[in-house]
């Protein structure tokens, strides 16, 4: 219906966390979503990091030969 307008007032990180803390189960749900995002990001980071390690493993024996 509306174009998203960037809010001119900063809600504040601490204030948002408190709203979640006071919102009962809805807050827990929102906080778990944030936690999941964080875990997903960590997994993605590990996945991205893996091929680099693999390359190193491949290169190592060639260099010793």
């Amino acid at each position: 219906m509306f174009e998203p307008i960037l809010s001119y007032l900063d809600p504040g990180t601490g204030a948002t966390l408190l709203q979640l803390a006071l919102a009962g189960t809805a807050g827990i749900a929102a906080a778990s979503k944030m936690r999941m995002n964080k875990i997903k990001r960590r997994l993605n980071r590990d996945e991205e990091a893996e091929p680099v390690q693999a390359e190193g493993h491949v290169e190592e024996p060639t260099s010793t030969q």
Binding site: G12, A15, T16, A30, K33
Partner: peptide
């Protein structure tokens, strides 16, 4: 609230952005 503000001040940009996207 004050404790959470202290906690927030230690968060990195990505974590803050996650909190900013929270919805109720």
């Amino acid at each position: 609230r004050s404790a959470l503000e202290r906690r927030a001040s230690r968060m990195d940009t990505q974590e803050r952005s996650d909190v900013g996207g929270a919805q109720l």
